[in-house]
Amino acid sequence: MPPSVSSPCVLFLALLVATGCAEPDPDRLKIGVAFDTLQTEYWVAGYEALRADLARRGIDMIEAIADNDSNRQLDQIHAFIARQVDGIIVAPKDAMSVVPMIHAANRSRIPIVIYNRPPSANDGHSVTVVADNYQIAKATVTYMAEKAKASGKHYKAMILIGDLGDINAIQRRDGFDAAVSEYQDILEVVARVPTEWSQEIAYAGVTNSLQIHPDINFIFTSSDFLFSSLVSALKNRGKYAKIGKPNHVLLGGFDGDSTAYRMLEEGYLDADGVQDVYFECAASLDAVLDLRQGKKVASIIQDPGFVIHQGNLAEKKSLMWGSQVAK
C-alpha cells in the first residue's frame, strides 16, 4: 500500500477514535450481560471480571440482574435484543429457563453465550462456558483422600450437597462420590447433608450430623459459601483446628472464594477446587466476539480449573479469584 493512500486513512481513523471518546460512539460494540443473581461472592467476582474485561477491550456493557426470577431474565434478554446488542452473555437461573432466551437470540441472529450454568438439550445455537465441576471436585477430594491415606488413619466423611435443582451441585457431588469410591478402605461417608444452598440449613445439617457422628473428620462442601456455617458448627464442637493439630478435620471446598483463601492462608483448609473466573470471563467474551464474526466456536468451553492446597498455595494464589477479592 502506498503511503499516500494510508496516511489519510490513519488520520481518518484517528479522528474517529477521538470523536468516539468524546461521546458514545454508535459503532462501538454493545454486549448485554444478564446475571440471574449476585447472591454469592462467586457471581459478584464473575460479574466484576466481565465488566473489567469489557472495559479493557473498549466494549460497552449493558447490565441486567434478575434477582432469581427467570421470567424477568427473559424480559431482560428481549430488551437486549430490542436495543440491538452485539452479543449476550447470560448466567441463567437453571438449565430450562435459558432455552427460550437462546431461541430469542437465535431469531435475531445475536450471538449468545451461557455463563457457568449449561442449558438443557435444545436445538438452538449457543456457547456455554462452564467450569468442569465434576473433574475439579474429583481432583480436590482425591487430594484430600491422598492426604488421609498418608496419615494411615480411618476417616469418616461428610459432604454438603448444594441445591438438587442445580446441575453444577449435582456434578460436584458426583465428583466427590467418584473420588471417594477409590478410597473405600480408609473413607466411609456417614453424612450427606442437603443444603439447598442455604447457610441456615447447612448449619442445622452439620450440627445434627456432628451430634450423631462426633468422629467425623473429613468434610467436603460443594461451595465455599457454606464455610461460615460449617466453621461455626465445627467451632461449637471444638473441632475447628489448624492442620497438624490432633483434632483437625480434613476440609475441602469448591469455588475459590475469599473465605477459602483466608482459611488456606491461616492453615485451616486443606484443599479448594478453584473455578478460574478470569479464564471463564475471557473465554465468554472471546466466544461472543468470535461468534459475531462468524467464526466456529465449540459449543461447550470447559474451564479446567485447578486445585489449590497447602502445597501449591504460593504458586497458585494469584490465580485464585478469592485472593483478589480478599485484598
Partner: peptide, 17 residues
C-alpha cells in the same frame, strides 16, 4: 440467634423461611 449460630450473614439468609 441465627446470626449467632452462623457467625455470618449471607445474601439468602431467611429466604423462603
Amino acid at each position: 440467634i441465627t446470626l449467632a449460630q452462623l457467625a455470618a450473614v449471607s445474601p439468602n439468609l431467611g429466604q423462603g423461611i
